[in-house]
Design a protein around this nucleic acid. Structure first.
Lengths: 204, 204
DNA sequence: CCAACCGGCTAATGGCTATTAGCCATGAGA
DNA sequence: TCTCATGGCTAATAGCCATTAGCCGGTTGG
């Protein structure tokens, strides 16, 4: 019945999943984002890839695992982008700019993942690992701002408040960004970098 | 069985609800915040006020109505605080400061309402009214920033980005604030006011 | 004193859901 | 050609849940 077209390298870049399991994960992501985890049924996910609910179990092991893998992958990608952006940069201003740009880029490019990741932590049966990764990520920003203050380059009353502000405004991007809007991802990242430097009192 | 202690004026201020219906709404708010709307059962809400699920229907008309009233009340309060804060203030800098302070005060004082309001819009069967109120609220900030730019007092590349940033960082307060922490509500409001003025390029 | 209401309760009702069991067609490899 | 893994399917399992129906003890206004 199904004509299993062989997978070509370009497909992933074009948004077409390589195999059925990947298609299922993508459909789950979209549905979790649009309706929420609990409101999404296995039948919904199945319908989105053209099969019935129970048939999903031939490819993935369950709904909760789908969510858990999604959220772990999200945090891994975010942390990887952060590390790569900041790697080898020692100047604290430049380092903050790059960290914020990576943060915003992530939330614009992976808006559904970010959206689900932020809303559905409570739906995770074992949120510990995800929460730990998130703490690590947040701490990186706070410590960077503290360093900038210690070096006399930044001026903030509270590094904690400044880091929360910067992180929260970047996460907000996932709520409204869409391709083809007023700004490209790069423009957005740059402008949020500016705003972040203003927040820490260093807008040179 | 139940000893209906007469209600005294101080009770509301102490967090004790005036009547059973109010107690139910408060329990629902807490549970919706902690577990999510869909994960919260009528039995849960009943247990939180010491009765069984079906008995709730003697006081409220249903789960969905509980959520809808909650979210409408949330937006009404937020808009009322905003209006009261900026009423009669014409100077654009001062007006922005007061608007931001009201915004942050709301998200610190009513963190559960804000939390639920932001997460459960998708659970509302008729979100139109809430979304309209939210748009109105956002527009107020954007137009205020545009005015500041037009007057040459603020300097931002995009009033839209600046307003989103300010709103998002204020909303983030609802995610971590708790009484007895490092900052009081007033301190928080003031500091976020400063950060907002920095964002719009006016940190006088 | 008593009738009616209030506000509990338990027992349906009607529906939905994740997951498992077991069946079957297809197609590929031996 | 035969076998068997693959990946569909439907039916069954084992719940859970919002809401309604109907019962009943206590309180209270007349």
């Amino acid at each position: 019945m199904k004509v299993e077209r062989p997978h070509r390298p370009g497909d992933v870049a074009a948004g077409l999943p390589a195999d059925r399991a990947a298609a299922i994960r993508l459909a789950a992501l979209r549905l979790f984002a649009a309706q929420g985890y609990r409101a999404t049924t296995m039948a919904d996910i199945g319908a989105a890839v053209g099969i019935r609910g129970p048939s999903l179990y031939k490819h993935v092991s369950g709904k909760q695992v789908l969510l858990a893998e999604l959220m772990l992958g999200t945090m891994d990608t975010l942390l990887a982008m952060h590390t790569e952006a900041v790697d080898g940069v020692t100047d604290v201003t430049e380092r903050l700019r790059r960290a914020v740009e990576a943060h915003v880029r992530y939330h614009a490019r992976h808006r559904l993942e970010a959206f689900v990741g932020n809303r559905e932590i409570g739906s995770l049966e074992q949120p510990g690992r995800v929460l730990r990764l998130r703490s690590t990520y947040e701490r990186g920003f706070r410590e960077l701002i503290e360093r900038g203050v210690a070096e006399g380059v930044f001026a903030v009353r509270s590094a904690r408040l400044a880091s929360y502000s910067i992180l929260d405004m970047g996460m907000g991007v996932a709520n409204w960004f869409h391709d083809g809007g007023e700004f490209s991802v790069d423009q957005l990242a740059y402008q949020y970098g500016d705003l972040a430097l203003r927040i820490v009192g260093r807008d040179g």
